[in-house]
Design a protein around this nucleic acid. Structure first.
Lengths: 210, 210
DNA sequence: CCCAAAATCACCCAAAAGGGTAATTGATTT
DNA sequence: AAATCAATTACCCTTTTGGGTGATTTTGGG
């Protein structure tokens, strides 16, 4: 009945923490620390073949950062689950990590019980995050309370603008004259404080106006 | 020592589920179901004043959807925590809910213990999500495995393009001639399969090429 | 060492965009 | 009733863009 344990690799430069984590993992039934590395370079070298189930990755490492390491590991093993385990709560670190392919993000104060639960959750197809981290991630979706200054028609035109249509094409699609489209776009530029299509599209995408 | 309970409102059209949730909440120390509503309209009317601590919101409601209701509730009470509690696992529902201001997202199979833990987590500044939901949210950050087809220089030019610069301005910034910039942009268009700046900017933003 | 790709520059030309001004109509708000 | 805003159309003029063709130099990899 004994299922095989979850194999875990650790990438962490602090030898004390590394050893502590190893002890916790190997002391818990169902978990096994298969490898541990003090830096990104040796981790990449050691994990090129035989990836573990889950990697615990520190962000601040000597040399290559944990984020860069995550990116490269994911390119080698797209299905590998990597959990960032770090003191950093900086917004950029969080989102850069997620973009690099991290599956979860835990702060280092996480108690051992929760850490083990998180590893199991990741293995089972979840994405463990410390509560405050999760809130920030969710918060990044919340659209800014600034309501769009554009009218419905202008928003429609902006949408077509984002698709690369020219005056003629937009006019045909909306059954109006090109002059009307020009007028709309002029107003859009004024309201968004931009002066050309590229800027308008960028603003539309950033502020989710479309 | 008895702290005041967490007050919770329920918006759920199924009377059985509504009653079940009410029983669970009121039967658990530290929790109290202050209000429950069968639809979005009555919830909005009832919660205009005296918002609870947390709202459990179903998505599929008769009339106004739970997502729309979430949006409006958040406009009334920006700090209110709303947890979506639904059978829907559709991508659009998840992301639309988060954009509308939801704090968490749980599937209805969530066992009572976890539900209570989630409410506490939300109250404490976290963002509870069912594991599979969390994975999808995180997954939305993962950049597509398609590597950028652009050279370093082209990426640089694309960045300036996204800022609305014209040939002359880009040329000055990069200390090259406008003809060179034109050549770069031409190559960018070919590689991205676009034909104008608007499309290029959109693709750059969508594929995070900048 | 050679090749391919990247980076650099030039010229031509038609189409598109951007900016200014102005006018009419209908809806909404005050 | 007056004022405001959205939507619609028109015209003029300059600048910018996009596409085509062609050339030189540098650079990285096999």
């Amino acid at each position: 009945m004994n299922q095989r344990p979850i194999y875990i690799a650790i990438v962490e430069d602090d030898p004390e923490i590394r050893q502590l984590l190893t002890l916790i993992l190997n002391g818990s039934p169902g978990f096994s620390c298969s490898h541990s590395y003090p830096d990104a370079e040796s981790a990449l070298a050691g994990l090129t073949h035989e990836p573990p189930d889950v990697v615990l990755m520190d962000i601040q490492l000597p040399g290559m950062s944990g984020i860069e390491c995550t990116q490269q590991l994911r390119e080698l093993h797209p299905k590998l689950d990597i959990i960032m385990l770090t003191v950093q709560e900086e917004n950029d670190d969080i989102f850069d990590s997620l973009c690099a392919g991290a599956t979860g993000y835990l702060v280092k104060e996480t108690p051992p019980t929760k850490l083990l639960a998180a590893i199991e959750e990741a293995k089972a197809g979840g994405s463990p995050m410390s509560p405050r981290i999760a809130r920030r991630v969710i918060g990044s979706f919340h659209q800014s309370p600034v309501k769009s200054p554009l009218s419905a028609r202008e928003t429609e035109v902006l949408g077509l603008l984002c698709e690369g249509r020219n005056y003629r094409q937009i006019a045909d699609q909306l059954f109006v004259s090109t002059n009307t489209v020009k007028a709309h776009i002029k107003h859009i530029y004024e309201k968004l404080h931009v002066h050309n299509r590229a800027e308008a599209v960028r603003k539309a995408m950033q502020d989710k106006l479309v």
